[in-house]
């Protein structure tokens, strides 16, 4: 019985410590001290490619199926950036939506080709634009704290 009490006390203390900590941690420890504004990255993303950054923003989207990405709102209206993590390495919960997140990761890019719409003559030009290649910049997440 004494052992049971000891085990329960340890679990209780562990829970208290866990909840008392400043937000929930995901992945590796955050090492960077200086934050970079998301607007700064989006202004000239190519300049940040391959660089490690620490960003902060509200979580406005979470991967519903695997929790393998989150989208962070920028410091300016209409701006956001996606943080992608390796599937299964970090799993973001859907409850993170609307919460503040501090994320450390590396900026990278890839080229995507948008799907071509079945268009009429009227929106042929629009189709051309949609069919063009687009370079997407996002953050390869290493560690995060969601408050």
């Amino acid at each position: 019985m004494k052992i049971l009490y000891k085990v329960l006390t340890i679990i209780f203390l562990f829970t208290i410590i866990n909840f008392a900590s400043d937000g929930k941690k995901y992945g590796k420890e955050i090492t960077l001290k200086e934050k970079t504004k998301i607007s700064e990255i989006l202004k000239n993303p190519a300049a940040f490619e391959g660089k490690r950054v620490l960003v902060e923003g509200t979580v406005i989207g979470v991967c519903e199926k695997r929790g393998c990405w989150i989208r962070l709102a920028g410091d300016k209206d209409y701006e956001s950036i996606r943080v992608k993590v390796r599937d299964g390495e970090i799993v973001f919960p859907l409850e993170a939506k609307g919460k503040k997140a501090l994320v450390e990761g590396k900026i990278y890019s890839f080229v995507t080709k948008a799907k071509k719409k079945k268009g009429t003559k009227k929106d042929d030009k629009e189709c051309e634009i949609e069919g063009t290649q687009k370079r997407i910049y996002q953050i390869k997440g290493i560690g995060a704290i969601i408050k």
């Binding site: 509200t58 406005i60 709102a73 209206d77 209409y78 956001s80 409850e95 939506k97 609307g98 919460k99 503040k100």
Partner: peptide, 20 residues
Amino acid sequence: IKSSFKSSPVTIDIYFNKKT
């Protein structure tokens, strides 16, 4: 309300606990 985000001039997302 937990937070909100304007994704475009005509769209806004408002976040609550477990609701958007």
